[in-house]
């Protein structure tokens, strides 16, 4: 079986748009938003309150609060990744706990996607663009200016199939004789100053270690990349060039940084 590429290991995506200050008035539009999406396939409301609207439509979940507008994908495992993840039996697969935010409901069942990770990413981006465009139209005068916008990618790394260099280096560097480093999550934050005519950027990289001191078999590691664009002054959607341009700038920015970082470099594991 050939070595899996990191792009095949994406399991979830999230986009977050954060207002410059609390906007209590957003609640006035919750009913209109619900009316607009209620008849779409797979619609399911989770929370309708003055301070929060949280619903699922199709495969995305949408959360609107006074602080932020968040769209997240379903937890999705592509076929390539599924073939390499540890399984308890046919019906259960292992994923790195502590990697996913609670919007992903890891305690519930997940769906296996027939889509390739590339198609999964493309549909999530398209769906996010359209839901942002719709909400922007429903909110009178458009959505409020954002202090920053961000996109998060969540990766599950099948350590039985690949050697993950950064995890190995981290484990080695943190080694103390006679002791096992049992810390499960390491977080690094990176700041990128604004280039000419561009926004400041920020990346939060989280590495989730498996509990390999308890079991000999390699398990599953996790990585999340939270990439943010921070304009000098709060910007409305039009300031980013529209919903599509805004989301694409996040999607392209995060891909570029991950590619350049070499953090997701895998090597084949010797059998």
């Amino acid at each position: 079986m050939p070595t899996i590429q990191s792009s095949e290991c994406v399991t979830a995506l999230l986009i977050g748009l954060h207002y410059a200050r609390r906007r209590f008035r957003i609640g006035n539009f919750f009913n209109d938003i619900l009316d607009a999406v209620a008849e779409l396939p797979n619609f399911q409301p989770f929370s309708i309150a003055p301070h929060e609207l949280f619903f699922k439509v199709g495969k995305i979940k949408v959360t609107l609060t006074q602080n932020a507008f968040v769209v997240n994908s379903a937890l999705t495992i592509g076929k390539e990744l599924l073939a390499r993840l540890p399984r308890k039996d046919e019906k259960y697969i292992a994923l790195p706990a502590g990697l996913y935010d609670d919007k992903f409901e890891v305690h519930k069942q997940i769906e296996l996607s027939n889509e390739s990770p590339k198609a999964f990413r493309r549909s999530f981006i398209n769906e996010s663009v359209e839901i942002i465009r719709l909400v922007d139209k429903i909110v009178q005068g458009g959505l409020y200016p954002f202090r920053f916008i961000g996109m998060v990618e969540y990766y599950a790394v099948p350590l039985a199939a690949v050697r993950w260099e950064i995890l190995e280096r981290f484990t080695k560097e943190a080694d103390i004789f006679g002791g096992v480093n049992t810390e499960k999550i390491a977080t690094n934050r990176y700041y990128f100053p604004a280039d000419e005519g561009e926004h400041e950027k920020c990346l939060i990289f989280k590495l989730v270690k498996p509990d390999d001191h308890k079991q000999d078999e390699p398990q599953v590691g996790g990585a999340s990349f939270d990439f943010q664009l921070i304009p000098e002054k709060p910007k409305v959607i039009a300031g980013f060039g529209g919903p599509k341009e805004m989301v694409m700038s996040l999607a392209m920015g995060i891909s570029k940084i991950i590619d350049q970082s070499n953090v997701m470099n895998f090597k084949p594991r010797k059998q």
Partner: peptide, 24 residues
């Protein structure tokens, strides 16, 4: 922190997300 989490999986019918972007 628990190291790994075993999750029940089911085959996706692929119907729900097909036309969502277009419908929205």
């Amino acid at each position: 922190v628990e190291p790994t989490h075993f999750i029940h999986v089911e085959e996706d019918t692929g119907e729900a997300g097909l036309s969502l972007a277009r419908a929205l």
